[in-house]
């Protein structure tokens, strides 16, 4: 297959919550359009509440858009497609009553992987994220960063072509994020997966991505897409490079206006009451 062929096509997707005319109606996304080529890592950034998770959930089939449609390999998304798409959530969604390895295996069981295959695949993906020594721990015994590694292993174990990550490192401290970011870059360079990575860290967005898509304030639209031309895996010196710094500043400029908009919006709403 061709590396530049489009895998995920987002066509004029809008999402509103609440009935039309209801004063509480929230338009989370407005005609977002996006093409994602095979093997690309796309970062998605935007002000908080602008519809990033909403967009990701629509692509993953966990939500149905009000208008527009998403296709994966030309097939319209109508529900979760566990054979093609794996998720890494911001929240810890490991099952606390199962050990680390059993969590990874359970994902495969849900997906329909035969029992004999699960053990080997689970060990492999735990090794890939450096968690092989904690296979028999329970999630409650792990730090936040380790839990995220396990969630990543669970997603990798599903061996899907697409991985959707919704602020997977948001709840972690900065040092942990840094290390995880570097490890992720190495890991993903090997796998050739198509990835959408939502983050609110501008540096993280640039460091990991082939392209960074900036969303506007709610209702979210794609404001601009920036190319990051830098080979994978990214080295830690890219983190401190002037190139990354310049791109970070460009993103900051783009985002700044949008974030201001949401703040004034909130002030107005507050003033009404």
């Amino acid at each position: 297959m061709n590396r530049t062929s489009t895998v995920i096509k987002v066509e004029g997707v809008s999402q509103a919550f609440g009935a039309e005319g209801d004063p509480r109606r929230v338009v989370a996304l407005e005609s977002a359009t996006l093409d994602i080529p095979r093997g690309e890592l796309l970062s998605l950034i935007g002000p908080s509440g602008c519809g990033k998770s909403t967009l990701l959930n629509i692509i993953g089939g966990l939500a149905t858009p009000t208008t527009g449609r998403v296709t994966i390999d030309g097939v319209e998304v109508k529900g979760p497609s566990p054979q093609k798409v794996a998720y890494v959530f911001q929240e810890n969604t490991l099952f606390p009553w199962r050990t680390v390895i059993d969590n990874v295996k359970l994902g495969m069981a849900f997906q329909g992987v035969s029992k004999s295959e699960r053990e080997g695949r689970a060990r492999e993906s735990l090794e890939a994220v450096g968690m092989q020594d904690f296979a028999n721990h329970f999630p409650g015994q792990l730090s936040g960063g380790m839990k995220q590694r396990v969630q990543l292993a669970r997603a990798l174990g599903l061996q899907t072509e697409i991985v959707l990550m919704d602020e997977p490192f948001a709840a972690l401290d900065e040092q942990t994020r840094m290390v995880l970011g570097e490890d992720l870059s190495v890991l993903l360079a090997r796998t050739g997966k198509t990835i959408i990575f939502v983050t609110h860290s501008l540096v993280e967005a640039v460091f990991l991505a082939d392209r960074v898509a900036v969303l506007t304030a709610r209702p979210g639209k794609i404001k601009k897409i920036i190319n990051v031309e830098e080979p994978h895996p990214r080295k830690s010196n890219f983190m401190t490079s002037a190139k990354l710094g310049a791109m970070r500043n460009e993103l900051y400029e783009l985002l700044h206006d949008e974030i201001r908009k949401t703040m004034t919006l909130r002030a107005e709403v507050g003033g009404d009451k």
Partner: peptide, 11 residues
Amino acid sequence: SLLTAAKSMGA
């Protein structure tokens, strides 16, 4: 979120 995760994996 546990239910969402399970559904996303095809449970």
